[in-house]
Amino acid sequence: MAKYFKITLSILMISAIIISCKKDSVVDEDGLLITFRQECFVSNFELLGADFVSVRSKTAVIDTVAQTIDVEVLFGTDLKNVYPQFSLATDCKLDPKISGRTDLSNLASPKVYTVVSGNRKIRKAYKLNIKFQ
């Protein structure tokens, strides 16, 4: 009887050690820290021209419920060569990433950027609507 008890105890101990040694993944595929934050929204938006000067004619309107960003740009803005800048809630990231000059000239098909929360479990797709002044 005592023998069975010892075997059971040993198995339990080994299992406990194995489970306790399992390491949670704390970084995502981009090497960014995964946190517990669930906030997931765009807080600010800027659009720069090829000369890195703002091409907005007024402040961008961000609707976090409808998940849209409406921005009006100056007359003559070359939307094939602009640099969008997003400010996101803490620990969020953007998908697709903005790697440099971006072509936003197809106004008929607004580009969609997805915000991913800090815990990487919530994704919100924002539609970027651009119109000329």
Binding site: A50, L74, F75, G76, D78, K80, N81, D103
Partner: peptide, 9 residues
């Protein structure tokens, strides 16, 4: 590449 043919402002 892909630059416009005008510069205003």
């Amino acid at each position: 590449v892909d630059m416009p043919n005008f510069a205003i402002g």
